[in-house]
Computed example of a mutant assay.
Amino acid sequence: MAEPISVAIPIAPKVDLTGLPDKFSGQFFKRWQQRMKIWLTMKGLLTVIQVTRPEPTDTDPKTAEIAQWTERDQIGRGAILSALSNTLFDVYCSDSYTAKSLWDELDRKYNTEEQGLEKYSVSKFMRYQMVEDRSVAEQTHEIINLEHALADAEMKLPEKFLVMSIVDKFPKSWENFGMTLKHQKGRLSLDDLMIAISIEEEHRNQTHKMPVEHQSRANLIIRE
C-alpha cells in the first residue's frame, strides 16, 4: 500500500488589526488617509502602498521576492478594505486591486472630491453673514462648524482671527455690541465671545418681553 503523500499547506500570517482607523465612509478622507498611513507604518506595511509588484526577468525570476511581495500585498489590501465602510468595501473588494492600486484609486477619487469641498468651505465661510431674525448664538455655532471643516482640510484658522471674523459677521443691530468687543482690553478668546453673546442675547430677549413702560425705564437706567 502506497504511503500517503504529505503536502505542506501554507498558513496565512495572522495580522493584528488593533488600532485600525475608524471605517472610512466617504467623508474626511485626508484624516483617514493619514491615520491609515500611521497604522501601516506601525505594522511595517507602509511599502505595500508605495511599491509595485516586482517583475521577473529572463535571467532572474525573482520567485522569492515576488512571493514575499504577494503575501505582504494581501495583508495590506485586506487591512485597507477592513478600514472601509460596508458600502465602500462592496465597491472596492475586487481581486483586481493590489494594495497600492486600491490606495491610489481611493486617493484619486476622494482627494479630488475633498479639494472641491475645501474650496466650497472657504467660500461659504468668507460669505457667511448673520441675519436679524435668527439667534446670534446659533449662527455663531454655524460659523464655528465651518471653521472645523476648514481645520479638517488643514486650513485651521488662528483663534483671534476666528473671533474677529465672527464679530464682523454680526447682524446690523449688533454692530454697537461688536464695536464694544473690539475695543475691549485684553485678548478675547472664543469661549469668552460665546459667553458674551449668550449674555447679550438673553438680555435682549428679556428686554423684548418687558412691557413698553418698563423698557423705557430700563433704557433710562442704562443711560444713567
Rank of each mutant, 00 (worst) to 15 (best):
S82V: 04
A79S: 13
T87P: 00
L88E: 04
L88S: 08
S85K: 05
A64G: 03
A67H: 09
A79I: 11
T63K: 07
L81Y: 11
L81A: 06
Q74W: 05
S85F: 12
P61I: 03
I75C: 08
F89H: 09
T70H: 12
L84N: 00
T57G: 10
R77Y: 12
R77D: 01
L84S: 01
K62C: 04
G76P: 04
T59C: 05
L81W: 08
T57P: 01
G78T: 06
T63G: 07
N86P: 08
I80H: 03
K62L: 15
I66M: 13
Q74V: 08
A64Y: 07
T57V: 06
S85T: 11
A83F: 09
A83S: 15
T87C: 02
R72F: 12
A67W: 02
R72K: 15
I75R: 08
D73G: 07
I75Y: 06
T70I: 11
E71F: 07
F89G: 00
F89P: 00
T57F: 08
T63Y: 06
L81F: 12
T57W: 06
S85A: 12
T87S: 13
R72N: 12
L81C: 09
W69I: 05
G78L: 02
D58Q: 13
P61K: 11
T70M: 09
P61G: 02
D60R: 02
T87Y: 07
I75M: 15
I80R: 00
N86T: 12
F89K: 01
L84A: 03
E71S: 14
T63D: 07
I66W: 09
G76H: 04
R77G: 02
L81G: 03
S82F: 09
D58A: 15
T59L: 12
D58Y: 10
